[in-house]
Design a protein around this nucleic acid. Structure first.
Lengths: 359, 359
DNA sequence: TTTACATGTGTCAACGTTTACACATCGCTT
DNA sequence: AAGCGATGTGTAAACGTTGACACATGTAAA
């Protein structure tokens, strides 16, 4: 009647199958499947017998077989751009994991390590695994995204601008940057420096360029608004593309040192990231410039802010939520469908900002 | 000859199958499979024809079907204990991912969020997915580990002591702690404080207890060695089990404040983690005690050390390597086999330690 | 010339689930 | 009394891949 069973639920390896529980319950596998998924008609008596058999044998549905048959694996692949030393990606991945498992989805991760070839390998692996969707956080090479798109698999991009048929999760960096600047101006600062990274010219990096440009634009526009515009002499932009170890802490330290040498009159600095701000704090500490008494510092992203001394005022970027939203799109969207989710930043005032020093 | 094909490699959805390329190459699926895996005899001419057909159709092996047939998915599940705010788990997960993908394995992640029930759900999901191995970093509930073990799936535990048939990755906290203490004594410190967490008494948390005990033992033993032993008055252990938000930065700040109030004579502190050290640094900054001029601080784990001002001297814990080793065991071990890997810590001297202040 | 073994390829039955379809009953309505 | 829909269950064919097995050759040793 039923094929010979080998996993009888006792030895442990490879577990009992639908056939095994069907046999014990004296029904067909179809009925067991119906019980399992609660669809179709099943009498109460049968249902109970099947459920008992499942319990006794410790039956666990083989998701691999199920996935093959149904053509869907309920799995999301997360492709990380790179992870160290920035917690951004880990945080996003966690958000995806959270939302996905909440809905019974599985999450595969792959770290592209910043290289297009690695990313390609990851895409291949994910497509091979027949994931339902791939979340790029953030994509290295647009061609890899294109590839997924062509394969008819849902694409979700984090922090990368519009792509024909994909879900996109974006955060408004401009508003956050203006909030930070307004905060400094309200405290009475007028000589405010900016340290950040230069916008890459490579069109491949358009997403990164957008983020960088928005933060700097916030700085410039608010100064302008208050009549301090048109002067970029207090802006220090590095040249990280020449620097193999970028982004490094050292970078923030260097930028800040350069700013202090060049414009000793500044009473506050706006750093384009917490990592940069952390480096800036180190430079200030070394020069015995006390924060916030003698200089105020604002960061961006809230990755390290809490841990620093003093705790850093920063613009929080909702990384975890970005992951959650990305997973939401991944689970909801049809292949080759577009959708955009915008998330807001939030100014978190801590102890690195205060009124300017009395000169 | 061959079944009707539906995915012809053009429409994108669901892709071409072995049958499709077999048809185009004029061979059987068995031959295509042989070419794919490079096993068995295939003539050069046939191989070339098959490879051409695969390339033209953009064939990608369906890992789901393959996994079902072969009974192995080449997938490792990583079960995280929890992730925020400690980068430890993310780092270990990354190490696993790195080593795994290097060998063509896939990595599923699940975050137990510190709860045994969530962990159980994760284990169920992983077993359903028929992962080849599960890495617990670190396990919440031993019964969940037991469950995996009984299912005949390879178990690897990170930082949790012996379990019958499992791979275990451990790091020697004791040696690291003694290195840190010796460093302080060599600089001339004699009044050294210790801030850390109390060892949990719950047998479920034996792994955590071991780690905590080893670090404290290192502190005590080295002091003893140098004739300053038997005095625990400079040891501040919290009571985090009462604190819902543990572990928090606030904790380090509080412990340090308590230590300074109670034993103002201390010239150096050994903190049981970087997070605690970061909090300590905040307390010192607030009191305008300059590091390292007036007080030295040593951390443990190197999670935050680099970012702090001043950069923290700490005992580096090889988290990434722990993940790599865990993946190695996961891929190598037979089910229900034991194996232990010990990793060493390393003292990293930065700028938070120096000779004691002249009183 | 037989024998044996290496080489090359096809057939077909799995792997464990899902689901369309068929076939029963049962209780009602006309 | 026939007909109908709702209910309950089984049969069997997929899903795409793998691998044991069978069956060819060809070539070299006996």
């Amino acid at each position: 009647m039923t094929p010979p069973t080998k996993g009888d639920g006792q030895d442990g390896k490879s577990g009992p199958t639908l056939h095994d529980v069907a046999a014990q319950a004296g029904v067909s596998t179809a009925t067991v499947s119906r019980v399992l998924h609660g669809k179709g008609y099943v009498s109460d008596a049968t249902r109970r017998r099947v459920e008992k058999a499942m319990r006794q044998q410790g039956f666990r549905l083989n998701a691999v077989a199920s996935g093959l048959k149904r053509g869907s694996t309920r799995t999301i692949g997360v492709l990380l751009h790179e992870t160290l030393p920035n917690p951004f990606f880990a945080e996003v991945a966690l958000g995806v994991e959270h939302a996905a498992t909440e809905h019974g989805y599985n999450v595969l991760v792959y770290n592209a390590r910043g290289s297009a070839e690695h990313e390609r390998t990851g895409v291949d692996a994910f497509l091979s695994q027949r994931v339902d969707a791939i979340v790029f956080a953030k994509a290295v090479d647009a061609r890899n995204v294109e590839l997924v798109h062509r394969a008819g698999v849902v694409v979700v991009e984090v922090e990368k601008p519009r792509f024909r048929g994909a879900g996109v999760v974006l955060v408004d960096n401009y508003v956050g940057a203006t909030a930070a600047m307004r905060h400094l101006l309200e405290l009475g600062h007028e000589q405010i420096g900016y340290i950040g990274d230069p916008a890459p010219t490579d069109p491949e990096m358009a997403g990164t360029a957008r983020v960088i440009a928005e933060r700097l634009a916030g700085y410039r526009d608010v100064l302008e608004e208050h009549g301090f515009g048109g002067d970029d002499s207090r802006v220090v932009l590095g040249e990280y593309f020449l620097d193999p170890g970028w982004p490094s802490l050292r970078t923030g330290y260097d930028y800040m040192s350069r700013l202090l040498d060049r414009s000793p009159e500044v009473t506050a600095v706006f750093a384009a990231s917490d990592l940069l701000a952390a480096g800036a704090l180190q430079a200030l500490y070394e020069r015995r410039i006390r924060v916030p008494d003698q200089a105020s510092v604002v960061g961006f992203d809230d990755t390290h802010a809490q841990h620093l001394a003093p705790p850093l005022t920063t613009v929080r970027q909702p990384m975890f939520e970005m992951g959650v939203e990305a997973a939401g799109l991944a689970m909801k969207l049809e292949p080759r469908t577009s959708s955009e989710v915008w998330l807001q930043t939030e100014l978190v005032v801590r102890q690195s900002t205060g009124p300017p020093r009395q000169v």
